Amino acid sequence: MTFVPANQGIEKLKPYQPGKPVSELERELGITNIVKLASNENPLGCSDQVKKAVAAELAEIGRYPDGGGFILKDQIQAQFGFGHQQITLGNGSNDLLEIFARAFVSEKDSVVYSQHAFAVYGLVTQAINAEALEVPAKGFAHDLDAMAAAVQANTKLIFIANPNNPTGTWFEEAEFDAFMQKVPAHVIVVLDEAYVEYYPENFNSLKFLAQYPNLIVSRTLSKCYGLAALRVGFALASVEVTDFLNRIRQPFNVNHLAMVAAVAALKDEAFIEKSRAVNKAGMAQLQAGLEQLGLSYVPSRANFILVDIQADPAQTFNDLLKQGVIVRPVGIASHLRVSIGTEAENAKFLAALAEVLALEVQA
């Protein structure tokens, strides 16, 4: 049989590596009492209202979901003020990022994104075999002026994240508005807001959608809403852009239980407020603990913090695993990304980090 090679972009592609699961570490090292601070999950889990809503719908597992996602789109419309024709549902925001690229980018085109940004931007670009224009970061943040200047004649798409993963950096509304005014109207701008719920006072992206028809705002319910296992996200955009996205979206890409859970999660404002409070308290706890250890970090507006451990990230990651603590190397020299956990989880991480780095708490 003659070997048939994959598309050129796929041949060179290295799959996305998710955070290490707890079950995998248990199998490898035979340890328990593991703390996972690697995948930016909500340490509270999900809302009790979500659990009740999903339990009530278990009898429907044998049926296909509503391919149009009516109940979830209805809740998004009620909450955010955008009609069904401006909503695209996704199997998490990763699914949406791929849909955006497939809808608007060919192998003859280029995609702009920042250094130190979400790894999936580069992966979806390479999968299409498009040209990747990675713009050097400004410190650890997006350099929006440089990104606008990097746009070429064949540029079709720009990925930006606010707050950014894995650095936690952010930009303000005035900076974004100035950036959008520089971007040609035919270039699609994807504003990835996976962590926006943690500091909603920081940025209101939705007001820009009417002003900029080439803007897509992408959100997920995996983080603050605590639905990571169910994989559900949504995008808001103009009617014209949304029409193209839904032409290639798989009809059942969001399952019924995920939609039911998402509706309940969006309604439970008290849970979101509690999640924000736990996150802010945990952020303060980690910042104080890191300062006492003499370690610096990148200020964050997400549910994680990028720490300069002043050591080899791979070795430190492995040493922490032996202590029952899972964090995340993100390809940035001497840095590890740490998700905000509960008070006890944060304390365990700080103690383990001090031990593996042989650091003493400073007075």
Rank of each mutant, 00 (worst) to 15 (best):
A6T: 07
N7H: 13
K14P: 01
K14R: 05
P15V: 15
P18Q: 09
L37M: 09
V50A: 03
A53E: 13
A59R: 04
R63C: 03
Y64T: 13
P65I: 04
G67M: 13
F70N: 12
D74G: 02
I76W: 05
Q77Y: 12
G81D: 15
T88R: 12
S93F: 13
D95Q: 03
V111F: 08
Q115F: 02
H116L: 14
A119N: 08
G122V: 14
L123R: 11
L123D: 05
I128Q: 07
A130K: 03
G139L: 08
D143Y: 02
D145R: 08
A146E: 15
Q152H: 02
Q152R: 12
K156M: 10
N162L: 15
P163I: 07
N164W: 00
N164P: 00
E173F: 02
E173Q: 07
A174D: 10
E175H: 06
A178P: 03
A178Y: 04
Q181P: 02
V189Y: 00
D192P: 02
E193W: 00
Y199D: 14
L206V: 05
Q211N: 08
Y225E: 11
V232E: 07
F234Y: 11
R247C: 05
R247V: 03
R249H: 10
P251I: 13
P251A: 13
F252K: 08
V254R: 04
M259K: 11
A284R: 07
L286G: 10
S300P: 04
L306I: 10
V307R: 00
P313Y: 09
F317M: 08
N318P: 00
L321H: 12
K322W: 05
V330Q: 06
V330S: 03
S334K: 11
H335A: 11
H335Y: 14
K348T: 14
L350K: 01
E360Y: 03
